[in-house]
Each structure stands twice: as structure tokens, then as C-alpha cells.
Amino acid sequence: MKEIKKESTLFVFEDLKALPSEILNLIHKAIEARKNAYAPYSNFQVGAALLLDNGEIITGNNQENASYPSGLCAERTAIYYAGSQYPDAKVLQMAISATAKNNPTETPIPPCGACRQAMVEYEIKQETPIAIYFMGEKGAVAKSNSISNLLPFTFDKSVLF
């Protein structure tokens, strides 16, 4: 037996004031998107904002449905929209803000596993990393230099052939 070990590295900013201005703008777009989330069942609102290499900023928020599996997370809403409307653009950075309506979060909330898988597909497709910043409603902001850093054992097309 051999051991395989993979590590992930995150950088944590203590609050929004510590962020570079371009990231702060992206975070504010994610926060605004979060406020418009449709989450009547979970009361957990998530907003995402993507900066594309053409300068466009795409936002998305979670959209729930009474049939829970039919909803869609903010991150996938945004990245799928970017892929359909700007198929040749690269995603440079992504910002996410998440909170529960009845229990505001102050710690960084990372994307779920399904979103990580969807986002890493775009990172692989564009052959460049996507920097991701994520936070709760307020407080610290975590940064990963790539989506694959958050999904170290990536499932990709190489296993399908």
C-alpha cells in the first residue's frame, strides 16, 4: 500500500477592507446577487459574481424549488450563464457570499461539491486557474488560487475514455 496525500491552500483576509479594490467590487456584486436569491425553503441565500477576461461581470444566485433537487446553486447559475453567453471568454475570478436568513454567517462558506465539480470543468476547459474568494454574510474572506485547489481529486474527461 502507498499513501497519496494532497493538500489545499487557502489565504484568509480578516475582513473586506483587506481586499484589493477589484476583488472588493466583485464581492459587492456577489453580495447584491445574494440579496436577490430565491430561497423560500432553506432560507440560505448565496450570491456569486464572475469576472471574465473581456471585462464582463456575471452574477448568479441560488434558485430553489419545492422539489429540492430541481433548484440550482448561485455558482452554477453564474458559470453556466457565462458559458452560454460568452463561450470564448475565460473566467478570471469568482466571488461568493452566503448566509442563512435566520443565522447570519461570519465565516467563509465554500461552494458545495456539485458546484466545485461544475466550476473545475470550466477551469480545465480554459486551461487557466480561476481564483475564488468566498465569505459568509460578513467577516473573513477566504481565497483559493484555483478551483482545483478546492477539489484536489478532480473527476475529468480523462477517466471517461
Rank of each mutant, 00 (worst) to 15 (best):
G113Q: 13
N102Q: 14
I31Q: 13
A114P: 09
I132Q: 09
T99P: 04
F13P: 00
P110E: 08
F134W: 11
A131Y: 05
N65T: 08
A33Q: 05
C115R: 01
A74I: 07
S8K: 04
R116Y: 03
N62K: 11
D88S: 15
T9E: 05
K5V: 14
K143E: 12
S42C: 13
L160P: 01
G47C: 10
L51P: 03
S70F: 12
S97R: 05
G83L: 04
A142W: 07
A95D: 06
I132S: 05
S146C: 04
M1G: 14
E22L: 00
E121D: 09
T59W: 00
Y133N: 09
E32W: 02
L10K: 08
N61A: 10
P87S: 02
V159M: 10
I57G: 00
K90G: 07
L51Y: 04
P87N: 11
K6G: 01
Q126R: 05
L92A: 00
A39F: 12
E64T: 12
K90E: 07
Y38Q: 13
A100Y: 01
E123T: 10
M94S: 10
F153K: 07
M135F: 00
N36C: 00
R76H: 01
A114E: 12
Q45W: 04
S146P: 08
Y133L: 06
L19F: 11
K138S: 12
L26M: 07
A48T: 15
M135C: 06
I109N: 06
K143M: 14
G136D: 08
E137P: 00
C73F: 01
K138H: 11
M94Q: 11
E22F: 03
L19Y: 09
P104F: 13
Y122C: 08
I27Y: 08
N145W: 00
I31K: 12
E137T: 03
S84C: 06
Q126V: 06
Q85P: 01
G71M: 03
P152H: 04
A82N: 06
A131N: 09
P111Y: 02
M119F: 07
Y81F: 07
R116P: 04
N43T: 09
V141G: 00
Q93K: 14
E14H: 02
K6R: 15
N149M: 01
V12S: 01
N43W: 11
P129L: 00
P110H: 11
A140W: 02
E106F: 08
Q93R: 13
I96T: 06
I58T: 07
A74V: 02
V141I: 13
I147N: 02
M1S: 14
N149K: 10
S67G: 05
A74D: 03
F153V: 14
R116H: 10
K35R: 14
S21V: 14
N145Q: 13
E14F: 00
E7M: 10
Y122W: 15
K157E: 12
K157F: 04
A114K: 15
Q93E: 15
L160K: 12
T128S: 12
A66D: 14
F161W: 08
K17H: 13
M119Y: 01
F44Q: 11
V120M: 02
I130H: 10
S67P: 01
